[in-house]
């Protein structure tokens, strides 16, 4: 059976794309953020996953309001990076893994998650930037990918509890796949940020750090909050933490935190990074 080697959660702020492109890793503004990544890259180099299951939210590249699935899974041979209209350079396309995609789809629907399947899919910065951060020097992506896209844009959003269970079902799906493949689950987005209105710039460090801690020790803690509570506590776009919840709950049982980083600000956002492994 396939093995889940661990979970990584990271911020996906678009401006990171420009910083990478302009080689600003050592710039004083960016250094505390980029310095978080080498330990995670070392770990990836050690565990060498074959496939990355990417849990993220799209910002209007692949899904617009005309069709807005709550949970969508890619089942394409290739996922393309396209111009999102805000000046981030595109990156080479990502190879899919059709066998895992379809196995996950069958397993998840059997598990009563009625997902949308996508045999063509463009992937935006929420998918591409985390992989660029994790594999900065590779001319070809060393992992195949399966996109799992969550609606964090248009209310009603899935509840935190639903996301938690969805992540557990993803974990069961991967681990029931007859394959020798090694899989890493990557959740992207967050942490606290608000991009709009008079409350723009809202950051809640105390809540973010509590969330990161509880994700390790007591992942059900966050399920006590409604989506409205999470907006109140972490800002209108802080709800992207749902992607972190899903990646975390894909790991069954207890986990250990191997590395984390937290830095304010990147653009309007509190940037977080976490590497988790099952015990």
């Amino acid at each position: 059976m396939a093995k889940i080697v661990g979970a990584i959660n990271t911020t996906h702020v678009p401006l990171i794309g420009r910083a990478i492109h302009q080689h600003l890793e050592h710039d004083p503004y960016w250094k505390p953020f980029f310095d978080g990544f080498p330990p995670v890259r070392d770990w990836l180099d050690k565990v060498k996953p074959d496939i990355a299951v990417m849990v993220y939210n799209d910002h209007g590249l692949n899904f617009f309001l005309d069709k807005m699935p709550t949970f969508a899974i890619g089942a394409a041979p290739e996922y393309v990076s396209l111009d999102e209209g805000w000046g981030i350079p595109t990156v080479p396309s990502f190879k899919g893994d059709l066998d895992l995609s379809w196995h996950m789809i069958e397993s998840l629907v059997d598990d009563e998650f009625d997902i949308t399947t996508c045999q063509e899919m463009a992937v935006d910065h929420a998918f591409t930037l985390p992989l660029k951060l994790l594999y900065p020097n590779d001319s070809q992506w060393p992992v195949r990918t399966v996109p799992v896209c969550i609606n964090t844009v248009q209310f009603p959003l899935p509840t935190v509890n639903r996301c938690y269970k969805f992540g557990q079902a993803i974990g069961r799906a991967i681990e029931s796949w007859e394959s020798e493949a090694r899989v890493v689950v990557i959740g992207t987005g967050g942490l606290s940020h608000q991009l709009d209105g008079k409350r723009a710039g809202f950051i809640n460090k105390e809540f973010d750090l509590m969330f990161m801690e509880r994700l390790v020790t007591d992942p059900l803690w966050i399920t006590r909050f409604s989506i409205e509570d999470i907006v109140e506590q972490t800002g209108t776009q802080g709800v992207e933490l749902l992607n972190w919840v899903i990646a975390r709950s894909a790991l069954q049982g207890d986990v250990v935190k191997l590395h984390s980083n937290y830095h304010i600000p990147i653009s309007n956002t509190a940037a977080g990074l976490m590497l988790l492994e099952s015990v």
Binding site: L65, V153, Q154, F155, P156, Q194, D196, G197, K198, R199, A200, S226, E228, V231, E232, T236
Partner: peptide, 16 residues
């Protein structure tokens, strides 16, 4: 229930 967050508009069904 989210109408009491200051300076904040939730992108709900009505807004969409």
């Amino acid at each position: 229930p989210y109408l009491d967050i200051p300076g904040t508009t939730i992108f709900d069904a009505e807004q969409s």
